[in-house]
Structures are given as C-alpha cells and as structure tokens.
Design a binder for these strands. Sequence first.
DNA 1: AAGTGTGAATTGATTCACAGCC
DNA 2: GGCTGTGAATCAATTCACACTT
Lengths: 246, 246
Amino acid sequence: MTSRRVERPPGRGRGIPEATVARLPLYHRSLMAFGDRGVATVSSEELAAAAGVNSAKLRKDLSHLGSYGTRGVGYDVEYLVYQIARELGLTQDWPVVIVGVGNLGHALANYGGFTSRGFRIAALVDVDPARAGERVNALVVQPLRDLERIIDEGRVSIAVLATPGSAAQDVCDRLVAAGVTSILNFAPVPLAVPDGVDVRKVDLASELQILAFHEQRKQMSVLSAVSSLPSLAPRAAVGPAAEATG
Amino acid sequence: MTSRRVERPPGRGRGIPEATVARLPLYHRSLMAFGDRGVATVSSEELAAAAGVNSAKLRKDLSHLGSYGTRGVGYDVEYLVYQIARELGLTQDWPVVIVGVGNLGHALANYGGFTSRGFRIAALVDVDPARAGERVNALVVQPLRDLERIIDEGRVSIAVLATPGSAAQDVCDRLVAAGVTSILNFAPVPLAVPDGVDVRKVDLASELQILAFHEQRKQMSVLSAVSSLPSLAPRAAVGPAAEATG
DNA sequence: AAGTGTGAATTGATTCACAGCC
DNA sequence: GGCTGTGAATCAATTCACACTT
C-alpha cells in the first residue's frame, strides 16, 4: 500500500516483500532484547515467539535477507541484529522533522522510542506562528516559514506530519517540494504525493473503529446465544463481553 | 493478523474481509466530509479518490456490506454513512479506558479524533501511584488498583494501552481478566491474549524504521546512478535525496 | 537430533473487465 | 450513457512439509 516501487538497485536479487519489511523492526527489537539478556543464539521458534509471529513466517522473512542462520543451531543474535539493522538503514543517522506541535506532535517529540535507533529530531515546526519560540524538550519550535531552510540545511528526508487534517496536504506539498521523500502521516486525511515519495499513515481514530467493529460482533453473538436460551431473560445492557475462551 | 475468528453470527452471509473492515473508517470519514459540504450522492470514483483508494477496491469493499448504490447514479451519501456507521458499531456508545498517562497517553486523552464517533474516555489509569489524582482535561487519573472496578462499573470492553513495554503484558492480563476484549496497544511489545480478544498495535518506532528502509534504498539508487557518471565526484554525504519524479 | 531454508500448496487481497440496471 | 456489482484472473502473503546441514 505504501511504497512506490523504486527500480531495483543493481545489486543481487534483492526484492524484499513489503510485508516482510514491516516485520523486520519487530525482529530487530526482539533480538536486541535477547542480546541484552546475554543470549548468544536463538532458534526461529524462540525469536518468533518473542516477536509475536509464527516460526515459518519468521524463517521465510529472514530468508529474504540472506542465509544468516545455522542449520541445527539457530541464529547468532549479534550477527543477525547487525544484518537487520543494516538492511533497515539503522546504522546511519536519520534527521527527522516534526511538523505540528499540538498534543500529538508534542508527545512524539518527547517519545523516547522515536529518537533511538538512528533517528534524531532535527526540528519541530508549527503552522501556528504564535507557537514559534516555545521550548519542547531541548528544542525550540520554529515557524513554518523556515521549513524549506530547515530541510535543506539539515539534509532531512523523513518528516512526521502531525498537523490538523486541514493543513496536512499543504504542508505535505511543501515538504515534498523541499526534498522530503518519506512521510509518517498522523493527520486523518490521505496525502497525495508524487511517485518516489513514501507515505505511511497512523490513523488512531480508525484503529479504534476497527476494534469497535469486532467488538460489536462479539456482543451480537453473545446476545444471540443468550436469547436462544429461553430460560434466561436478556440483560438490559450487554455486560462485560464474551469471556475469553481458552 | 488481528482478529480471532468468532463463530459467524447466524444472520445472513456476512463475512467481511479484514482488509475491507480496515478501510471502512476511511470511507466513513470521507463520506462525512462530503455530507458536510452538502453533497447528496457520490460515485465510486469520487469517493475512492477522497479516501485514497482505487474505485474497484471501493466497490468491492462496499459490495461486502450489501447493495447500497444505484447503477448509473452512485451512492446516496447520507444513507451510506449510516450503513457504514452501523456496520462499524459507531451508532453505540463505547466507553474506553486509557492505561498509561505518560507522553502518549496524555496526548491521546486530549486527542479530539479519539473521543468523537461514539468513543468516550471513561477513565485514565496510571501504573505509577504518584500520578493518581492528577487532572488531564476533565478527567482525574486513577490508580491501577481500581482498574477492575472501573472496567466492571463502566462496562468497558475497549482499552488503550500506553504504558512502557515493561508493564504492558501485566496490565494486559488484568484488562483481559476484568473483561476487556479489545485492546489498542501502543507499547512496543507483542501482547499475548486468549482467543476472543482482539489486539491492534500501533508501533511508532517501527513505522519510522520502515520508512528508513525505503529511504535508504532510494539513496542507494541515487548513489549508484551518480557514481555511474564518471565525470561527477560523489558528494561527501548523501544530500537531499532523489527528487520526486513527476 | 535439531533446526534452517525453501519449493509447493493454500489462502487472501487486489485488479480486471463486463453484464446488468437505472 | 453512466455507473454499480461481481465473477474471473492475477498478484501477494502465509502456511505446509521436508530435504538438507551441522
């Protein structure tokens, strides 16, 4: 859904499926945890369990990177961490600009998980000129007017867009014109971007609605189960829903 | 990936694909925007453009809900909004509890898009007893000790988990034991839950890493293109990456 | 004996293309 | 004539199951 196909770099047969790419960060994180605990090798079964996937999928995913395991033994934690980090580009420095310092942008600027692993917040920018000058963490909010300069001088290619929906497309256009080629979009609107620019969206309201869809179904099936027992009067409201079945 | 299969409610042939469910919120949102602008009917082409998908996909998605359009005409905006809202369960009230009132939980508590459309923050809970009593918006942070009572009395079935990773599984277990059956997980760990409980995860660090992966590839292809021009010395650092191609 | 790597089979999602209806 | 609804075709992801390696 996200990535435009960029013509394959001439190097060997690399074409990692998007679904695999999306899981590499999970593997990386789980491997780091194993490493911290002093574990030297893991099996696909163990790593898969830690990452929350099944082992067949894990092995298939890793096979797209190369043949980094040892049959009968497993994967060397340190070696695999490095290979995945390199594949993901975590071995380089990624300056990121956050546009929109409302609730969410503010939280993201402070969020630790964001700034680790090669990512560094190069600047905070807000659409509202009144906010310019405000301090967040160690950074000063800058006015939108300076966006192009910031991106150019900071060699920024990744942006986080946390403005209200109404401003999102305009800001996006300026980001792209200034040279940004990857955008993480928190605004609840689809962004139109030219080929070669990647957008990933995080849509908080949608996530809740998807949960509500399934939740509603569970409640419906409880209701219909209850109402099919003629001896039980249905409860006024649907209480704590379907007990989790082992 | 997310939903356990719940045995199909006895009603007619309903089995909406997960990928379709995940897009219904987008359609709903776009339709609301059309409605606000006074548009009475839309074609699949128009609605698809607004939602950022192609029209074949949109039509296939909607066909899973029923036959709500009119050939040669399009879809009635108001009618379709209602049908989708009903399907998603947005016509009922969904009390939600947020656990973890750090950066992110704080932002989510204030985030408007979260509280609209039937969702209502029933309580904020924090693992750190020192935070209990703190006010956020109109709500008072409550101690973890009260979690079970809050869920039970508030008839809460949906929770947002925004604790640090280290606390996430414990809190999750308590949520589930208390009757929560849907969890939106912001903690960077996979949650183990029994069948019948849905978890959706929002993994901010992973999202950036996925972007970095593609970004790195773009830069590699620029570099190899540049270095194949013998007359140009490669630049010391990789500058603002690949200009977006029309 | 243990556990990876991978073809083959399967399942799921997307796109095509057009019959059918307004 | 315009646009929906949908089978058929295609493409992508997952799972199976086992040959192969240590």
